[in-house]
């Protein structure tokens, strides 16, 4: 985190900081590629299972299924490749931004979305790391407010030490300490 993240002066309504000019921080450089690898391997596994069933000599399949399987495999492969590319492109534009008093997360290729979470409304936080996340040292930060589970603020693919720094920053934040 650079020093500039921590300056968020609020003077008057006219001089309000605006979210249209956020300083966007990228996610971990490993996040988008690893997601692509995971998606591609999932598709490969599905295709592999389908081809195995099609080619195996042990059991006689119903004729309908036998005719359907090649089509299914190709469809999964093509659509899968397309979606993986979309997700990859989408992952690359995800970014977050931390100001003195709020957190922001931007995402979406065609459907842009910016979620703004004031730190003073945070109830609790979770740092989530799956096995692959642990292997490559990234983490997912989840922030819960009283807005309900549907509106959990979530930043995926943060480098571990930055995720921990943000967590510490929020925990020691004066608004959270006061209202906690």
């Amino acid at each position: 985190m650079s020093e500039s993240n921590f300056s968020n002066p609020i003077v008057t309504i006219e001089q309000l900081p605006t979210i249209s000019k956020l300083e966007q921080q990228p996610l971990s450089a490993k996040y988008a590629p690893i997601n692509r690898v995971i998606n591609l391997s999932l598709i490969l596994i599905v295709c592999f299972i389908a081809s195995f069933i099609y080619l195996q000599p042990f059991v006689d399949l119903p004729a309908g299924l036998q005719n359907f399987l090649p089509f299914f495999t190709w469809a999964v492969a093509l659509l899968g490749a397309l979606f993986t590319w979309f997700i990859y492109a989408g992952d690359r534009v995800k970014s977050y931004s931390l100001r003195d008093l709020d957190l922001h997360y931007s995402s979406g290729l065609f459907f842009r979305k910016v979620v703004s979470q004031p730190i003073t409304r945070i109830q609790h936080m979770e740092l989530k790391r799956g096995p692959i996340d642990r292997k490559i040292g990234i983490a997912k930060l989840q922030v819960f407010s009283a807005g309900g589970e549907m509106h959990t603020f979530e930043i995926p693919g943060l480098p571990l030490e930055i995720a921990q720094q943000i967590r510490q920053f929020i925990l020691q934040h004066k608004d959270v300490v006061k209202h906690g």
Binding site: I19, F111, R112, V115, Q117, A146
Partner: peptide, 14 residues
């Protein structure tokens, strides 16, 4: 009373 605010915009709207 706000807990969170979201801004949404697709390319056509932009």
């Amino acid at each position: 009373k706000l807990q969170q605010i979201q801004f949404k915009q697709n390319l056509l709207m932009k």
